[in-house]
Design a protein around this nucleic acid. Structure first.
Lengths: 130, 130
DNA sequence: TCAATCAGTATACTTTTGGTAACCTTGTGG
DNA sequence: CCACAAGGTTACCAAAAGTATACTGATTGA
């Protein structure tokens, strides 16, 4: 992450300590950057939530997405899945201690979005509608 | 972001204050979550960097990606582009004050990745290679 | 019997990304 | 004249990501 550009003996430029393929920022993004991933984790911050409740909370995401993201988060050890023996059967997802550590930064992101991006910041005012 | 599930008079569940389409976390991710986007901004944190130097620093990203991301960041006001009148001509990109505000959280992400994801955490140990 | 809940899968399809490689323009040096 | 650097753009393509809809199978309950 401390890449510099230097010149070799013949004046050609070379990168020193270039940020190779998966630097920390990229790796983190691959874990938490997928669509809905952060939101889902965020919704689990206070208490275990059941599958269908999650789909209701994250309006807009399909069940497929929810279950894909949940498995992804589980694989990374950020949440954990518990089968309940309730009457119509049930599954609750809850955040793990490791998952908790991500909340700090998700909260930073949330705060940043709210302060620096307005509420209306999909793609900022583009001219020329062609 | 404070979605809850409640039951109506007939026992059906409904989401209250569901996290609608683009909640803060999702919106932030759309701005900084693209591949290379965070890394590029990060590389500008200390000083202006020129286009080709950037492509050398972020080994693995093509010129197309770099220029696409740069324009994206510029559109969002996080960096700014200055043409220098040097001998073979040059362009320097530098972070804006608004861009600086994102560094706080990028740094959180970087730290989180380093601490919680190892260095070797592409996709955690999957079994069944088919 | 019909309907609904739970927790997903399966299938099909569209959209968005990301990546390659070639090309362009201006200017310099050999 | 040729090659090279700078700072890109363009065309094209493959793969990944996301959406929509339907369906399973067990159980409950009107």
């Amino acid at each position: 992450m401390d890449a510099r550009i230097e010149s070799d003996d013949r004046g050609r430029k070379v990168a020193v300590e270039a940020c190779a393929e998966p630097c920390a920022i990229e790796r983190g993004m691959r874990v938490l950057g997928g669509k809905w991933t952060g939101s889902i984790l965020w919704h689990l911050k206070d208490e275990p939530v059941r599958f269908n409740d999650l789909t209701r909370m994250v309006g807009g995401a399909s069940k497929k997405m929810i279950s894909e993201r949940l498995r992804h988060l589980e694989t990374h050890g950020l949440i954990d899945r518990r089968v309940l023996d309730t009457r119509p059967l049930g599954v609750a997802y809850q955040i793990t201690p490791k998952g908790q550590t991500a909340l700090r930064f998700l909260d930073e992101l949330r705060r940043w979005s709210e302060e620096e991006l307005g509420l209306t910041d999909d793609e900022p005012a583009e001219d020329e509608p062609t």
